[in-house]
């Protein structure tokens, strides 16, 4: 095993081209897996000194770019994330505990793609894109396509995450992230990432992604599109939760059974939408 610490994205990508190379971001997952003898990369490419990956910025149009090495604590406090984009702040604030939030990064967490992690549903609900850099150049991938399967992403060997890009959220929308877990900071039993806008009883913006209920976040854009422009009552929310349930493929594990996840997730969606409507001053 060898250890390298490049100081630019180009040098990091070059170092990653070796067989068996892996990025070391915050270490919160990779080092834990190394300690457990689950992985043993032949080359560790530490991204610590790549300054560009540590930055976050807001463009004049409201797009927010978050460098892959931004830590959970920083993202939880990111005032550039506004309106519906706040779903990501709320997700970051609920990851693990303070020392782990001081280490773990958004790029590292997303590259590992734990199906019960907090960022994937939040980024899918925020319509975020991943900016990736590799030997062939740069590309962006929508969050909905980035997460592919259990612990699998669109990252090709030799490619790294440069940043996540959140499009502007319509003014007046709210973003929220609700997690059900055994204790605060544990991986989710189920989670709901939501961005919602309402105007005079009519839905103007709706994005709901459910985490920890399948290999990738569940989202039904088709039903969301049909619900735009109308009220969000029991019947409408029921249509959405029924459709979401078709996309669920939950595991049985120490946190909860698959059956429990199927039962609780639709109720969490209903509750999250109800709470968001209250914040918006709308009645259900």
């Amino acid at each position: 095993m060898e250890f390298v610490r490049p100081d630019s994205i180009e040098a990091a990508v070059a170092a990653l081209q070796a067989e068996g190379a892996a990025c070391l971001a915050g270490g919160a997952t990779l080092v834990a897996m190394m300690n457990a003898d689950l992985v043993a990369p032949e080359r560790l490419v530490s991204l610590r000194d790549v300054a560009a990956l540590r930055e976050a910025s807001r463009r004049p149009d409201g797009t927010v770019v978050i460098g892959a090495m931004r830590r959970h604590r920083e993202t939880a406090e990111e005032t550039d994330l506004r309106d519906g984009q706040r779903v990501l702040r709320e997700a970051a604030a609920q990851i693990a505990n303070p020392p782990v939030r001081n280490m773990g990064t958004i790029g590292g967490s997303c590259a590992f793609a734990d199906p019960a992690a907090d960022y994937p549903p939040a980024l899918v609900a925020a319509d975020a894109r991943f900016a990736l850099a590799g030997a062939e150049g740069r590309r962006t991938v929508p969050a909905g396509d980035f997460f592919r399967d259990w612990y699998e992403t669109a990252l090709e060997p030799g490619e790294l995450i440069e940043s996540v890009i959140l499009p502007p959220a319509p003014a007046g929308t709210v973003g929220s992230y609700t997690k059900l877990a055994r204790v605060a900071g544990d991986f989710a039993i189920a989670s709901v990432a939501l961005a919602l806008g309402m105007d005079g009883g009519a839905c103007t913006h709706l994005a709901v992604a459910v985490g920890a209920c399948g290999p990738v976040p569940a989202r039904r854009r088709d039903i969301e599109a049909e619900l735009l422009g109308g009220p969000l009552g029991n019947a409408e929310i029921g249509r959405l939760t029924d459709a979401l349930a078709e996309a669920f493929d939950p595991v049985d594990d120490v946190r909860a059974s698959a059956g429990y996840r199927r039962r609780v997730a639709p109720r969490m969606v209903r509750q999250a939408i109800g709470e968001a409507m209250q914040k918006l001053g709308e009645t259900q």
Binding site: L24, G26, G27, V31, N35, S46, M103
Partner: peptide, 11 residues
Amino acid sequence: PVRSCLSLALN
């Protein structure tokens, strides 16, 4: 505060 067990010394 961070985890020293998850911090590689070379980093």
